[in-house]
Amino acid sequence: MGLKSAIGNLAGWGLLAGAVFATGVVVVAVVESLLWGLTSGRFLRIWFSAGFALTAGFVGYVVRKRVAGNVLPLDYDISVAFRGGQGGL
């Protein structure tokens, strides 16, 4: 494993760990809101932590897949088989 792969893998795991932590923050804030009522601070904590968890989780997953070489290519297949056997474009 090269240095680039190690750094990318570590960054991916760090983002995934941040997503797990942010999910925990969301759970705690929701429980607090159910017990003691929703305040603007709790609402914002839920809102931003949930957004961070989704974003960091997705980016961490993609970074780890990219480092491993398992990300789908972005060029679309326009072969005849892909179009369902139809003729030309």
Results as ranks from 00 to 15, higher is better:
M1N: 11
G2R: 15
G2F: 13
G2P: 07
L3V: 09
S5E: 15
A6M: 13
I7R: 13
G8W: 00
L10G: 10
A11Q: 03
A11V: 07
A11R: 04
G12N: 07
L15M: 10
A17T: 08
A17E: 08
G18F: 09
V20L: 07
V20A: 11
V20P: 00
G24Q: 09
G24I: 10
V25P: 00
V26P: 01
V27L: 11
V28H: 09
S33Y: 01
S33N: 03
L34W: 00
L35V: 13
W36L: 08
W36C: 10
T39D: 02
G41T: 01
F43A: 08
L44Q: 04
L44S: 08
R45Q: 07
W47Q: 03
A50P: 05
F52G: 03
F52V: 03
A53I: 02
A53H: 04
A53S: 07
T55Q: 02
A56I: 02
G57V: 08
G57L: 06
G60S: 09
Y61P: 00
V62E: 01
V63A: 00
R64A: 10
A68F: 10
P73A: 04
P73L: 06
D75Y: 02
D77Y: 05
S79T: 13
V80P: 06
G84K: 14
G84T: 10
G84I: 07
G85R: 05
G85L: 06
Q86K: 15
Q86G: 15
Q86T: 14
G87D: 13
G87Y: 14
L89R: 11
